[in-house]
C-alpha cells in the first residue's frame, strides 16, 4: 500500500485536534499539530522523522564532483576539481580548520596553474559543504544565470574550482592561488528540517589566507522556496560589481537594494 505522507487517510478519533488549524496559513512553523493525550500524534511524528531523514541525507550524501564538472562544461564553463585537507566526511564535520585549506596535492595543482593570461577578476569556487544536494540542485542553474551577466559587464572569470569538503574560508586560499581580485564560494548550507537543499554564496575582496569573516558578504538560503535563482544571481552581480569597483567587501559593503537586511552575525551561527 502506498501512503502519501501529506494526508492521513481519515481523521482518526485517537487524537485531539486543535481548533486553530486556520493559523497554519500564517507560518510554516509546526503549529496546531493536535495531540494524543499530550503527545505528538503518530502521523506528525513520522512527518518530522521524514524531514529529519531528508536533512541527514543532505549532509551525508556523496558529492559527485566529476558529474558537476561535466555539467559546467555543458554550460560552457571550464572547471578544476580539487579537495580540501579533510580526507572524509567524519573528519570534515569535526575539523573545520581542515576544510578551510587545500590538500597538498590540490595546492600544488593550483600552484601549477597557468598564469600566462591576465589575472581574473573573480574566482568562483563550488563546494559541497554541509549539503551536496544543495550544490547539485542549485549551483548549475545559478552559474548559468550568473556567468553571462558577469561577462556582459566585462568581469573576467577564472575556471570554476570544484572543491570537495570545503568550508567558506577555502575561498581565500583558492582565490589567492588563482590571483583573483575577488573570490566567491557557492557552498551547501547547514540543512534545516524544511530546507535540505539551501545554497549559500560568500564573497570576499582580496582573497588571502586569514581573512576575517567580517570581510565577507553572504547571500543565504538560495533555493526555489527561499531566495530564487534569478534573484540570487542579480544580488550576486550587484555585490560583485560593487565590490570590484569600490575594492571592499564585508560589513563595509551593504546591499542597498536588498530588504530585509542580513541578520546580525553575532546573533547567528555561521551556516557553512
Amino acid at each position: 500500500m502506498n501512503r502519501d505522507l501529506q494526508q492521513p487517510a481519515r481523521a482518526p478519533d485517537t487524537i485531539t485536534s486543535d481548533a486553530w488549524q486556520s493559523l497554519r496559513a500564517a507560518t510554516s512553523a509546526r503549529i496546531a499539530l493536535g495531540r494524543a493525550g499530550g503527545s505528538l500524534p503518530t502521523h506528525e511524528w513520522l512527518k518530522f522523522k521524514a524531514a529529519h531523514a531528508a536533512a541527514r541525507d543532505a549532509v551525508h550524501n556523496e558529492f559527485h564532483a566529476a558529474d558537476l564538472a561535466r555539467e559546467l562544461h555543458d554550460l560552457g564553463l571550464k572547471s578544476i576539481v580539487v579537495e580540501s585537507a579533510a580526507v572524509d566526511r567524519m573528519t570534515y564535520l569535526q575539523r573545520p580548520d581542515l576544510g578551510r585549506r587545500l590538500s597538498d596535492a590540490s595546492r600544488k595543482q593550483l600552484e601549477a596553474f597557468d598564469h600566462s593570461g591576465a589575472a581574473p577578476d573573480v574566482a568562483i569556487i563550488v563546494s559541497d559543504g554541509l549539503s551536496a544536494l544543495a550544490v547539485h540542485r542549485q549551483a548549475p542553474p545559478l552559474l548559468s544565470a550568473l556567468a553571462p551577466r558577469l561577462s556582459e559587464r566585462q568581469v573576467s572569470l577564472s575556471p570554476v574550482v570544484v572543491a570537495r569538503f570545503g568550508r567558506v574560508a577555502l575561498e581565500d586560499e583558492i582565490g589567492q592561488l588563482l590571483r583573483a581580485r575577488l573570490a566567491v564560494i557557492l557552498i551547501g548550507e547547514r540543512p534545516g528540517l524544511g530546507s535540505p537543499d539551501s545554497l549559500g554564496a560568500y564573497l570576499v575582496h582580496g582573497p588571502k589566507a586569514g581573512n576575517a569573516d567580517a570581510r565577507r558578504n553572504c547571500v543565504s538560503n538560495i533555493r526555489p522556496e527561499g531566495l530564487p535563482i534569478e534573484a540570487a544571481a542579480e544580488t550576486l552581480v550587484y555585490l560583485i560589481t560593487e565590490s570590484l569597483r569600490r575594492q571592499i567587501s564585508g560589513v563595509e559593503l551593504k546591499d542597498d537594494r536588498m530588504v530585509p537586511s542580513p541578520p546580525n552575525p553575532a546573533a547567528l551561527p555561521s551556516r557553512e
Partner: peptide, 24 residues
C-alpha cells in the same frame, strides 16, 4: 518551539508537546 522545529534558526529544540510530556 512548535513541533521542535525552529524555522528561523534551522535547528531542533524541544516542543510544547515535550513540555507536557515532562510535566505528565
Amino acid at each position: 518551539v512548535p513541533g521542535a522545529d525552529d524555522i528561523m534558526l534551522n535547528y531542533q529544540s524541544t516542543s510544547f508537546h515535550d513540555a507536557h510530556y515532562l510535566r505528565q
